[in-house]
Design a binder for these strands. Structure first.
Lengths: 228, 228
DNA sequence: GGCGCGAGAATATGATCAAATTATCCGCTG
DNA sequence: CAGCGGATAATTTGATCATATTCTCGCGCC
C-alpha cells in the first residue's frame, strides 16, 4: 500500500478542501476507469472504509453514486460488484457512444483554440509513449484524458457528462482487453482526429471519432465473445 | 432463545421488503418526475428525514443518487435544489432524446406483442381523460408511463435507463409548462404512434416519436425563453 | 441432503462536529 | 438623532462517526 495516513495532519488547521465522500468517489471512480478493479470483483463498504482513511457513511455514498452511474452493480442481496459487460450491453453502449461522442467532437471543433490543440498533442504523444512502453494503466489514463479534454471544450456539459458515464461502463473491460492483447495493436485514430481538428474540418473529425469508437468497442466485443 | 419476537412480528406482517433508502429514492423520484417539486425549490436532508419516516442516512443516500442522475442539483455550498433548466441544457437534452428514444421505439416494434398494444391503448385513453379533466399530475404520470412501458419492451435496458434519466431532468419543467398553458393543447402523438405500432411500421413509429419529442420540448423552450 | 447456528457485512439511527446562512447589535456617518 | 455597514452571535443544515440492528451466506450437524 502506498497510502500514507496523515490523520494527525488533518486534525490540524489543514482542513480537507473537499468532503470525504467526494474524495472517495473520485478515488473509486479512477480505479474503475483505469482497471484497478476487475469485472466481477466484489466491493465492500467496510473493506474500503478501512483501506481508505474514511468512515462507512462517506464510502457508502460514493458507492451508491457509482452504482447509479453504472460503474458498479448492485446484486439485490446487498452485494456490490464491478459489472461484467454482456454483448447486449456493449451493443447499446456502442450505439449511444456513436450518437453522442461524434456530436461532442463536432461542437468542440467549433470552439477549438490553438492552446487546446497543443494540449491534445501533448496527451497523444504521452499516449504513444505509454503504448510503446506497454504501460497499460498509463495508456488507459491518457486515452481517457484525451477524450475528456476534447469533450470538455465542446460547451455541452450535459452531453459530456453522459459520455463520461459511458466510459465508466466499459472501463474495466478495456483493461481486460489490454491484459489479453497488450497495448501494441490498440486503436489510435487520434492522429487523424488531430489533423482534422487543426484544419477545423468538422465532419472529418467526427468520422475519425466514429472509427476510434468502433475499433475500441470491437476489441472489447472480441474478448467478450469467447469469455462470457 | 432467539424466538422472542412474536406479536410484534405479526404487527409488522407487511414489513418493508425494500430498504428504506430505496423507498425514499422512489418517493422523491416521483415527486420530481411529476412536478410535486418546482424548479429552484430547495431540498434539505433533515426536512425530508422528518417529513418522511426515515433517518438522515437513507435520505442522504437517496438525494445523492438523484443528484448523480441530474434530478437534483448540488450547489457547491452544501445546498441542494431542484435544477432550473437553461435553454442550453434543454437543447442538449433534445439532442439525446432524439438519438435514443426513436431507437428504443424501433426496437420495441420488433418485439411488439398484442398484449403490449392493449396496455398502451389503455394508458393512452387514461391520458386523454386526464387531459380533458385538466388533471395535470395525472397527465404527467400517464404520459411518463406510456413512454416507459414502450421502452421497457425494447429489450435494451441500458438505453431505457438513459431515457429515464432524461425524463428526470425535464420533468419539473414540464410541470411548469402545464401550469402555464394548461393541459388542453399539449402534444399527443400517441395516436399516430399506436397506429404505427399496430401495423409494425418501424419507421413511422420512430417518426411519430420524434414529433412527440419535438412538440413537448418546444413547449418547454417557449416557457424557458421568457422566464429565466 | 435439509436445517439451524454463527460470522460477517449491510442497513439504519442518533449524536456530535463543522460550516454557512441569517439575524442582531454596535458604532459610525450624514 | 436616524439610518446604514460591518462584524459577530445564533440558528439551521450538512458531514461524519460510532453503534445497534437486521439480513445473508457458509458451515457443521442431524
Amino acid at each position: 500500500m502506498t497510502l500514507v495516513k496523515n490523520s494527525a495532519v488533518e486534525a490540524m488547521a489543514e482542513a480537507a478542501p473537499q468532503p470525504v465522500h467526494e474524495q472517495v468517489y473520485h478515488a473509486l471512480r479512477e480505479r474503475v476507469l483505469f482497471g484497478d478493479l476487475a469485472p466481477g470483483e466484489a466491493v465492500t463498504i467496510q473493506g474500503l472504509a478501512q483501506s481508505l482513511p474514511a468512515g462507512m457513511t462517506p464510502v457508502r455514498e460514493a458507492i451508491r453514486r457509482l452504482i447509479s452511474e453504472g460503474a458498479l452493480q448492485f446484486l439485490g442481496n446487498r452485494r456490490v460488484i464491478v459489472p461484467q459487460l454482456t454483448l447486449a450491453d456493449l451493443e447499446q453502449l456502442v450505439f449511444v457512444r456513436k450518437s453522442i461522442e461524434p456530436e461532442l467532437t463536432r461542437r468542440a471543433v467549433s470552439a477549438i483554440e490553438p492552446a487546446l490543440i497543443n494540449r491534445l498533442h501533448g496527451l497523444d504523444t504521452a499516449l504513444d509513449h505509454a503504448i510503446s512502453r506497454g504501460d497499460v494503466p498509463a495508456y488507459l489514463a491518457q486515452n481517457y484524458r484525451f477524450h475528456a479534454t476534447l469533450y470538455a471544450c465542446a460547451g455541452a456539459p450535459v452531453l459530456a457528462e453522459m459520455a463520461d458515464r459511458l466510459w465508466l461502463r466499459f472501463g474495466p473491460s478495456l483493461r481486460v482487453v489490454c491484459g489479453r492483447f497488450g497495448t501494441q495493436n490498440l486503436p489510435d485514430r487520434h492522429k487523424d482526429l488531430l489533423a482534422a481538428l487543426a484544419r477545423a474540418d468538422t465532419e472529418a473529425a467526427a468520422t475519425a471519432m466514429v472509427q476510434d469508437i468502433e475499433q475500441g468497442m470491437e476489441q472489447i466485443a472480441a474478448v467478450l465473445a469467447d469469455s462470457p
